[in-house]
Design a binder for these strands. Sequence first.
DNA 1: CGACACCTTGAAGAGGTTCAAGAAATGTGG
DNA 2: CCACATTTCTTGAACCTCTTCAAGGTGTCG
Lengths: 267, 267
Amino acid sequence: MFEPDAKLPANPDAHALTLGKGGSKIVSINAQTIKVACSNCNLRELCMPLGLSATELDRIDEVVASRRKIKRGSTLFRNGEKFANLYAIRTGFFKTCVASEDGRDQVTGFQMAGEVIGLDGIVQDHHTCDAVALEDAEVCVMPFERIEELSREVTALQRHVHKIMSREIVRENGVMLLLGSMRAEERLAAFLLNLVQRLHARGFSQSELVLRMTREEIGSYLGLKLETVSRTFSRFVEDGIVEVKQRHVRILNTDALKDIVNAKVCN
Amino acid sequence: MFEPDAKLPANPDAHALTLGKGGSKIVSINAQTIKVACSNCNLRELCMPLGLSATELDRIDEVVASRRKIKRGSTLFRNGEKFANLYAIRTGFFKTCVASEDGRDQVTGFQMAGEVIGLDGIVQDHHTCDAVALEDAEVCVMPFERIEELSREVTALQRHVHKIMSREIVRENGVMLLLGSMRAEERLAAFLLNLVQRLHARGFSQSELVLRMTREEIGSYLGLKLETVSRTFSRFVEDGIVEVKQRHVRILNTDALKDIVNAKVCN
DNA sequence: CGACACCTTGAAGAGGTTCAAGAAATGTGG
DNA sequence: CCACATTTCTTGAACCTCTTCAAGGTGTCG
């Protein structure tokens, strides 16, 4: 029924990637030649600014201090920890979540390769959420001081940092819309479309995906209970919109999902 | 029953303000002496970095290109409009809201004096939400290009811009927690506490406030219908937690509100 | 292979919404 | 300044969606 799941490749530098309007295929590079440098990384298009000169590209390499591997289930950073770095995800999949004093927990986002996490820590100099790896992961450690230094000199980097932060603000606006005004089916449909779209931008299928998170985590993100998530999946299956086998999801009717999200709530 | 409402003063420069740990009273300045300059503005502590040298302060003045008055009910910017400026609120009160294609509407925040709006526009070079004045307002227009230029030179400004954006991200995380996991009473209690805390930081009462928005707008922000907001207010009144007369609210029992927010949802 | 985490499904219940009507404030124009 | 239209707010009753509680099934990993 399902293909063996398309996994993020262990070495993203060996993974051809097409992106955006002028997106060009980047030729695979043999693993041996890799050094810890953005200029060699084919995820660069995702987490670094485009259109840099050769000199600027060299400078950019300086923002990555090191790499760090995180085992599935362990945290990259925790609420309360001193903030020092932003992290660009090379491989793997994360969730971020905030907790209130009384132990309530809310997943605030799911992050995949090429995305940057840690922005929450800047204001208070301490992180205000947890970042947990949902599968074995590797990140580029980018000391924020270095980012700030460099973005004073490389205008494109400065602009890029601003855009990344603004993008996160806009994303959260969208989640607020979802949480504030959508019903369960609409939420799950929007969630699936968003996931598959981001995966597609990374070279994966437009119609097939493997969920890296539990129903409970999906539910937390969408403001629903895990049972509701499960039931809603089942309803989608009944309606022939998707096939679901545990965490494997195949979207059979993308338009139906889009219709569900944009259901005119005539008001 | 209620005092004549404590309004934001028409001229904020005449409004003594205490803030933060080392917050010092700023002496009132006669209206005639005012020029369009942060160095003269007592909201500076809210929207600009602290601890600048005299030279830096002079430079900072350059970020404000002009001032702009917005009538109640009209927009500062709209979804889709070209992004060019950030705006620091001098007086008045705004809401920001996003709309989905199908006409759904979601208030994403309420902003008051000293707060900065427009950050959503940076990613796409176009605004993705509307900013509507809920009372007559005045803002400082800060061309973003100028902010970027200057923050390459003035490190404190650079850091400040980063913090403002990060603060917004963290705020939205909090709203997601609220929308995703709280019940109506908890949402409204959290909302009131947040508002009164921000007003208090601006020199207003800790217990009394005038809502600048309708029940419907509160509801949109909190992911509730206006009837639910109204009913929840009524319940608070019954329980002696607040007094409500239209938009005038007096908090009689702050601790009760805090208890409601932190109600142990034992899990 | 057995323990454990995760997922599905049913039935009952609660919280919030919807629809509706009326009251209270606010604004407008004569 | 008053009358009238409009907006905003409150409250009730019926309804609906999602949650809660419970049980059983499926998959995974040591």
